[in-house]
């Protein structure tokens, strides 16, 4: 079996995997990072979204061997030094989650949006989340959370200047 080596949440990890092992399987079963979920088998629900080299991808539609040498960030790696990321904080404050199953993917997907576009409109948030399904919230409070996080991150960026 090939060995795959990558950096996950800042730590270098490696493991033997069958080539057919999906990245999400390697994260969940190989590394015990069960915050990345599997909600469908047609690459549409987005419960498995992680970042690979700074871009959001569906970890169910990528082989672990394709992430050789990559920097991978999962939901477990988002809170730096124990303090919540503004997106996590905003999802909490705005009731942006109910059952929590889609939440890691929603947050990881939204993270790339805010990296690309620090000040998205409501419509831009809704369009960006095309690849993430939620069955609980009707998206209302998810959209609100992403907009609130964007505002908080802009505020923090201004304060840092």
């Amino acid at each position: 079996m090939p060995t795959v080596t990558m950096t996950v949440n800042g730590k270098q990890v490696s493991g033997e995997v069958e080539p057919r092992t999906l990245l999400v399987e390697f994260l969940r079963e190989g590394l015990g990072l069960t915050g990345t979920h599997v909600g469908c088998d047609t690459s549409q629900c987005g419960c498995c979204v992680v970042h690979v080299d700074g871009r959001s991808v569906k970890a169910c539609t990528m082989l672990a061997v394709q992430a050789e040498g990559a920097e991978v960030t999962t939901i477990e790696g988002l809170a730096a030094d124990g303090s919540l990321h503004p997106l996590q904080q905003a999802f909490h404050e705005n009731h942006g989650l109910q059952c929590g199953f889609c939440t890691p993917g929603m947050i990881m997907s939204s993270l790339e949006l805010l990296q690309r576009n620090p000040d998205p409109s409501e419509a831009e948030v809704r369009e960006w989340l095309e690849g993430n399904l939620c069955r609980c919230t009707g998206y209302h409070n998810i959209v609100k959370s992403v907009l609130a996080a964007a505002a908080a991150m802009r505020g923090a960026a201004r304060a840092a200047e």
């Binding site: 871009r55 991808v57 949006l113 690849g131």
Partner: peptide, 9 residues
């Protein structure tokens, strides 16, 4: 095409 994650790969 697709969604942002599909477009990324």
């Amino acid at each position: 095409i697709g969604d942002p994650q599909v477009r990324n790969l």
